[in-house]
Design a protein around this nucleic acid. Structure first.
Lengths: 345, 345
DNA sequence: TTATCCATAAAAAACGTTTTCGTTGCATAG
DNA sequence: CTATGCAACGAAAACGTTTTTTATGGATAA
């Protein structure tokens, strides 16, 4: 096993000092042409690469972005990560991804861990439990230490950071409006508890669409499920009961899973999509695209979201620290992808 | 903005030396009870946390595992990552994830980057292009430098590393046999080019199942598509043509996407699943579970695979470097998940 | 001849730790 | 009274860099 080549080893081998080697490799004019060439040739031959850890320590920056998300087995988040990765690479930044599993303690732990020298800044989507607890001390701490933070998708108020969001309300409104335009009148929504930001906003969009269309919101047609990231048996049963109990001709859901589970029950009941019931969901993922019928969705453009979040963070990292920092919220446009689960206009 | 607390700052504040602070915090008996308590109290009050970068440099290890995968927008890989993450946390290791995008150059770049001090070892699934090129110098280099490597799922031969695999051949054989047992006789396979290890092995399993059942393999019933991670329009067209052209009563596919695209075409043609054509695919993901009809799959147990890979790597990292290293291949059991896309026995 | 300047290089400090080795002062043993 | 030992702490080296400061000759200027 060959030990990794260091400046010290090169110096010893060529009988010069460490600083000479360093300077030669960085093309300092202080070093004579001859020495420089000799050192560079040697370094190249033995494939010298500076040690990142040492550089990080020296420069007090890591060129690494920490990403903390609730879930990785989740199409939307993976597209966001892909976007972050792409933008990061373009600017020579690394990406470290950590999972919170929607768990408050894990989110705190991960942030503290990464904050101790591993990253220069954070991109995160807040864990469900954190939103419930409303305890954001870990966020405030890293910000206090001068590490910029960008939140995306699941965000909270009152933190000194930038935000990248889609207009959840408008997106939902758009989706529901499409159903209204194609003739639906009794539209239900499968959503999540209000403390999850995206759930609340999408529900608001749903209601606004109905009201704008002169339809009174019927609270019985709103089902708030516990978990937005999965649809376990309990949730499936709730959905089935909910659909059976109500007379509806359209369903809007805040994610794909709720939609396909609704579709499954409708199918079982012999109801046709979209002839009897239209279906529109948030998040344009693999399920929506490949389902039969394919689902009309509100696309969140996760990749663009990731790119934007990374861009904002990198910008902050490269700008000389300013007092009186300004924080903004960037909105990514959603778009309605019309497929087979809704009637045509 | 408060600068991060360091040993040096604590030392200055309390008028002791840096080494005293360090020792006190690590409960060295060399330091008097009194001084120790004072220092620990101070550190606790101001929430001192050692700098990871400095520790990494000092200890020449990072307690970080580098994971390189072809794709993140991919259910199987995300489950593997989840498994790796879990095991890593349990042993106080961090995880850095990098994407190769199935691109050789990106794989090389990422490895070199992480190898320069960022990680202690690697877990990777080889990019398609790398398999095609058969250029593994980057792998050999990091191994040469003493960093252990564990390959999973998409592996190659001739590298000094451990491997974690499912028995692709047996899994495929199992799936196809299930179709045979439930009465299928003309079974087709949608697979991928042979240089992708998993594609080749699954095809072999398919053939073996047929032969064991006394059915001659019909080459016309084997369709080898270019890309195993996606199913673009060209591939969809190939699948449609393939199904139309051949008289079949069962289809086995090496991933979910091929299966649902086949299902879509069958549906269009008015063929019923499983009455007219049975369908079994590799990879038990969201699509299989939620599709109508839900798909019978060969489950790869990605999470377990991730856990195992991480366990092996961590073991290597903690064992004092041995000469004459032994490398092994661990197999994760697959299991057949019977759902609605096959007839019952 | 002596002071000055320049080209080239080496030494040292710094980043934040841990750890080995000294140092200091005091108490005890001989 | 001197030597020894110990408790308590500090200094310094090391990890691998970069950068600032210092040193060394030789050439030029006064």
């Amino acid at each position: 096993m060959r030990r990794k080549l260091t400046l010290k080893l090169i110096a010893k081998e060529l009988n010069v000092s460490i600083s000479t080697v360093s300077k030669a490799l960085r093309d300092s004019p202080e070093i004579s042409e001859e020495t420089r060439e000799k050192i560079k040739a040697f370094a190249k031959l033995y494939n010298y690469r500076p040690n990142n850890i040492a550089l990080s320590l020296k420069n007090r920056k890591t060129n690494t972005i920490g990403v903390i998300i609730p879930q990785i087995v989740h199409h939307f988040f993976t597209t966001v990560i892909r976007g972050i990765e792409m933008m990061a690479r373009e600017h020579n930044y690394n990406v470290i991804i950590c999972l919170s599993n929607n768990d408050f303690d894990k989110e705190v732990l991960n942030m503290e861990l990464l904050a101790n020298g591993s990253t220069d800044g954070f991109i995160l989507s807040v864990a469900k439990e954190t939103m419930l607890k409303e305890d954001y001390h870990h966020l405030n701490e890293v910000i206090e230490q001068g590490m910029p933070v960008v939140m995306f998708d699941r965000v909270v108020e009152g933190i000194a950071c930038d935000r990248v969001l889609i207009d959840d309300k408008a997106g939902a409104k758009n989706g529901v409006t499409h159903m209204l335009k194609t003739g639906c009148r009794r539209i239900a929504i499968l959503t999540t508890k209000d403390y999850v930001s995206v759930g609340r906003l999408r529900t608001e969009g749903y209601m606004e669409a109905l009201e704008d269309f002169g339809i009174k919101v019927d609270k019985k047609l709103i089902l708030k499920l516990d978990n937005i990231d999965e649809c376990d048996e309990a949730a499936q049963k709730k959905i089935a009961d909910f659909i059976k109990k109500n007379d509806i001709d359209g369903i809007f859901t805040v994610n794909e899973l709720f939609a396909v589970n609704a579709a499954r029950f409708l199918h079982k009941e012999g109801k046709k999509i979209p002839e009897d019931v239209s279906l529109v969901c948030f998040t344009d993922g693999l399920l929506s695209e490949n389902f039969i019928p394919s689902l009309t969705t509100v696309s969140q453009h996760g990749e663009e979201m990731g790119r934007k979040a990374a861009e904002i963070l990198i910008n902050k990292l490269q700008r000389p620290e300013e007092e009186d920092e300004e924080y903004g919220t960037t909105y990514i446009e959603t778009s309605l992808v019309q497929r087979e689960s809704t009637r045509s206009l």
